[in-house]
Design a protein around this nucleic acid. Sequence first.
DNA 1: AGCGCTCCCGTGAACGTTCACGGCTTCCTG
DNA 2: CAGGAAGCCGTGAACGTTCACGGGAGCGCT
Lengths: 327, 327
Amino acid sequence: MSKRVTINDVARTAGVSRQTVSRALNDKGEIDGSTKQRVLDAARELGYRPSRFARGLVRQDTTTIGLVIPDLLNPFFTEVAAGALEAARARGWHVIVYDTADSIDEERGTLEVIVSQVDAVVGYFSLDEAELDRHLSGIPAVLIGREHRTPRFSSIRVEGATGVREAVDHLASQGHLRIGMLDHASRAGQSVRRKWFTDAMNAHGLNADAVGNAVQSVDGGAAALHELLAEHPDLTAVFTFNDIIAIGALKAARWLGRAVPDDLAVIGFDGLQLGAVVHPALTSVALDTRRVGALAIEQAGRLLAGETQLPDEELQVNAVLLVRESA
Amino acid sequence: MSKRVTINDVARTAGVSRQTVSRALNDKGEIDGSTKQRVLDAARELGYRPSRFARGLVRQDTTTIGLVIPDLLNPFFTEVAAGALEAARARGWHVIVYDTADSIDEERGTLEVIVSQVDAVVGYFSLDEAELDRHLSGIPAVLIGREHRTPRFSSIRVEGATGVREAVDHLASQGHLRIGMLDHASRAGQSVRRKWFTDAMNAHGLNADAVGNAVQSVDGGAAALHELLAEHPDLTAVFTFNDIIAIGALKAARWLGRAVPDDLAVIGFDGLQLGAVVHPALTSVALDTRRVGALAIEQAGRLLAGETQLPDEELQVNAVLLVRESA
DNA sequence: AGCGCTCCCGTGAACGTTCACGGCTTCCTG
DNA sequence: CAGGAAGCCGTGAACGTTCACGGGAGCGCT
């Protein structure tokens, strides 16, 4: 195994000192043009590359953030990730991406290794607070779509109550009275989004008990709509936990011969770009996914800098109704 | 600004030496159970976190790979990235992801900073070889979908000639005689995929001159199909550079009132998962995108280990026809 | 008693780079 | 010609961790 080429090797073959090599490579001043060239040539010839560890050790500038995502293939997380990457690049930060494959064990494993590699952690987690705390061992962390607020931890909240209200308003104004929902139940029981839905329905004096449960996938959404319509054939509109499930619902509706939006109106949640390519284009309670990612990065920066906490409003992104074709 | 908590601080408050602290944290043997606990407590209390730089400097184990992607929001690249992440995770490597936003300047900037942060680079690049070489400054690199083979560089090739041939066979067997193509012209002129198409058409004695040019987006595909059909109204089938463009074509076809596949057959390229959610589901010359990413990572590992070059066949992924509904 | 072994723990060195400082020329200025 | 400034370069130290080595205490065995 050939030893690593160090700055001293370059210095020797160029006939100068370490420091001069360093000067040449980081083009600081205080160096003669010709010697600089000589050093550069020597470095290239030897195939010298500075050690990021040694460099990082002495100058404390480079910051690296760990982005933890349950599934990169899910377009929602992709969009968030894209927003985060962009924000990070803007400040010259590096982002290590970890895909936990929706597995709690992978998440544990990821956390285990992540803490020794990054300055802060950002993303979606399923572990409970206690274990999260333990694994994180003091690293600043920003949790997305989940409450957890301490000096070391922050969270980015999604505010969808008014957006969902808009959606129900929209449906009601078109005469829909029987509106169902396809929820996505997690370990924690029914979702917040369902609560928003229920509240909005109640505000209209409508009952919100036609709720099905969908697995987090297109096929899951399709299957769930089948079931829901079998139970409640009179539904004329359906609101879904997210766009993925909504697209499944679109698929099932076509299968069942129910035209969208005339025979069945569909409204999703998230406002993914994906919703624009399907037919009919998906109406959705949209949230600025890229902004979610960007906010998380920014907040990680604040935690890193030890700045004072921001008011909740700043750490929140609001969802609004985006009317396309499906409702 | 509070100084960093070092291993010495922990050692002092625990009343032991550095080495003992190190032993406790990396749970090596040679340490008494009670002192270990004492050290751990001290570390937790002080909020101690080992410096990844100092650690990386002495033990040469952690490897980090830079993954360069033109646009994470493009589902094709997302799938490749997912494959790469998975392969990297399997060997305990870290992946820093850079999104160059389809900009050549960003790519340059990325390269500039990447070389000092990773052990190897993997991904899609637009720069010409000379500049690439210069920026990479000796780092092992794996270029995807592009030729570039030297001891330091490798490339992952996509073999689609037979897959495209299958596609044209498929269309011809259904009686299609006038088949067009929506190409994506780059700086380098017409694409290899177009060549594959032309060859396949010629093999059937069909002429392949009904070719339009599409921008790399759904809308671009839609616009291009409009133009192409205006010029060649007799086309009954169209093959596209990739699935994104194909989905645009689907959209345009619906707009023009041409039913797919009956009035117009559409075949894409890439075989994205996305193709399964649109309607009609997209027939495509599919390639195992995740495997592309995984292959790239594996090959980066070989370069890093200085292993001998593999035969080309091993660094290649073959595309095959995936028949869904659109043709 | 002497020897050797095991169990713990500590000390110098090393990893590869940059920072702070100091020294040597050379040139200009009054 | 003295003095100072500017330009160029080298030397010790520091960053925070692990590795290699050595050494003392305690125990059992001959």
